[in-house]
Amino acid sequence: MALLEIKNLYVSYGSIRALHGISFKVEEGEVVTLIGANGAGKTTTLKTISGLLRPDKGQIVYDGVDITRMGADAIVRRGLIHVPEGRRIFAPLTVRENLEMGAFTRKDKHEIEESMERVFTLFPRLKERVEQPGGTLSGGEQQMLAVGRALMAKPRLLLMDEPSMGLAPILVEEIFEIIREINEQGVTILLVEQNAHMAFSVAHRGYVMETGVIQLEGPASELAENPQVREAYLGGG
């Protein structure tokens, strides 16, 4: 049984329909990428899975449980964590407080402290800035904080929305290296990206979305070789 299964999902903003019945699966331990142009519905998909948006119809099954109508906080409690687009760290809160918010649903102080140490080994730069307000960090550091904050919740499935957005190429490499590392530690990842090249380099499988429907699917290596995909997302050739 898949860890996450989306069945025939329809979502609208007011009268404008953004998703026209998409279905896909994420198996435990995989990195799955969802690529597509602006407005294809990638972010909408993630927001619906994490409970920020309500679907018109369709079903979201996570770990064998229907979470379609569940509140966002209940979904987080089940270990399904969403790293939102644009990082969305809490600028007035310190780095430590941001990380503590990531662990909001957890009770055991000792375990939370352990998780924080693990985040600091993954991102030593956050440790140096632990008492600084999150808003004073650079873009790359903020992305690290956003990922670190998500890890504080002990995720089983991580939804990542454009982790490379607005970062210098060297930082993009670094972030994707960390995504691979997190996955190797046993976290399943659903990755939304515009940078298809990087996305295919870490993903096992991929789905290509276009205007609210899934156009193509397959193993990442196959998609990367697909002429249509190369034409549209990998800069031709």
């Binding site: 939102p84 969305r88 809160l93 909001f104």
Partner: peptide
């Protein structure tokens, strides 16, 4: 303070 700054992000923390 987190919710005052960004409510959707706060909900994603499980708040």
């Amino acid at each position: 303070r987190a919710a005052a700054y960004d409510k959707p992000a706060a909900r994603l923390m499980g708040i």
